[in-house]
Amino acid sequence: AMMFTGLTVANVVGVPFGTFLGQSAGWRATFLVVAGLGVLGLAGIAGLVPEQPRPEGVRIRHELAAFRNAQVLLAMAMTVLGFGGVFAAITYITPMMTETAGFADSSVTWLLVLFGLGMVAGNLIGGRFADRRLMPLLYVSLGSLAVVLALFSFTAHNKVAAAVTLTLIGALGFATVPPLQKRVLDQASAAPTLASAVNIGAFNLGNALAAWLGGIVIAAGSGYTAPNWVGAALAGSALVLAVVSSALERRTAATGQAAVEAAAVRQPQQTTTAAR
């Protein structure tokens, strides 16, 4: 959660500033500033991140073997669908807020600040509870996210309700991030480096998939609020996968416990037979 705080704070500061800069000086200026920040980030990594020795005995085939675990794949699918639900709506937030809610173009900046503040709060809350009740946290956050995204199709027609809903989407969306990342790392403990990297890719895949699907429904003439329904469907699908994952985990645990009990029953019988 603390690592992802950098991402959430960047959204609080960077996204609104980029929007303001683009509206004031043109979109090219925003890209130039982003490129400059990228160079600063590269210099910071080169100068401040210490060299890490290569772990002994680690091979790529060992890391790839972790992806044979169905729980790892389910966790990554939850990442794609759950976080994708957020970006189905957020990708088209400017036309939604200006054309539907009636905000001025200049208001998009502070609306994105609200969204970013929600992200920061949700991320920290998610990090606090991920260690305690990971799966219940996912049930609540994904289920609530699906509901709020569906409601956004209606609240987007009112300025105050739209602003509140947008903040909630940021909070609920990022409340899923720490538990999703931890779920992947827990299930792929033998390959934490590769699994963590691939799961970050899953976040980005979800963003791209949701934005594409949102664009399809808008192009079909369903209106600027239609991507909210897409987001709700994606988040709801992630909730279904979370329930399936938990059920499989309980079944595996029960099977393992039954095997242990059966072995415990057989052991005294074998000991008695050997004594005779």
Rank of each mutant, 00 (worst) to 15 (best):
A274Y: 06
A156K: 03
D105A: 15
A175T: 10
G36R: 12
T91R: 09
V80S: 08
L239H: 03
I45W: 11
V160R: 02
A233W: 07
T91M: 09
V80L: 10
F154D: 05
G206S: 00
G143T: 03
V147I: 14
L64K: 08
G18T: 03
P50C: 04
G118Y: 09
Q187R: 12
N199G: 06
A226P: 11
A150W: 06
A190L: 03
A171P: 05
V80M: 07
L40H: 08
W27T: 07
L137C: 10
V86F: 02
G44F: 14
A161C: 08
S222L: 15
V217H: 00
T5G: 12
S107Y: 11
A202P: 07
A208L: 05
A208G: 03
F20R: 07
L168R: 07
A101P: 09
A220F: 04
V58H: 07
R251A: 11
P192N: 00
M97V: 11
R250E: 01
M96C: 07
L151A: 15
V160G: 03
R128F: 13
T155A: 05
G41N: 11
V120P: 03
V15I: 15
G170S: 10
G14V: 05
L73H: 01
P227E: 05
A89Q: 14
V86A: 09
P192K: 04
F20Q: 06
Q257G: 11
S245K: 05
R183D: 03
G173K: 05
S141C: 02
M119S: 15
L134Y: 02
D105V: 14
I200R: 00
L112D: 10
D186T: 07
T167I: 02
V113N: 06
R54Y: 10
M3A: 15
M3T: 15
L37C: 12
F129M: 03
T5D: 05
T271L: 15
G256T: 08
V243L: 14
R54E: 15
S107L: 00
Q267D: 13
S107E: 12
V198W: 09
T91A: 14
I125L: 15
V9H: 01
A163S: 14
I125C: 10
M76S: 06
V148I: 14
E51I: 09
R183Q: 13
T5H: 02
A161K: 05
L168C: 14
L7A: 12
A150M: 04
A75G: 12
L138T: 03
A25L: 13
A171S: 08
T252F: 05
V260T: 09
R266H: 09
T98K: 01
T273Q: 12
I169W: 01
L149E: 00
G22A: 06
S153M: 08
L209P: 00
A25I: 00
G143E: 01
G102V: 05
F103I: 01
P192W: 09
G206V: 06
V243F: 12
A46V: 08
F83L: 14
A150E: 02
A190V: 08
L74D: 01
I90Y: 15
T94P: 00
N123V: 07
V177Y: 08
V39K: 03
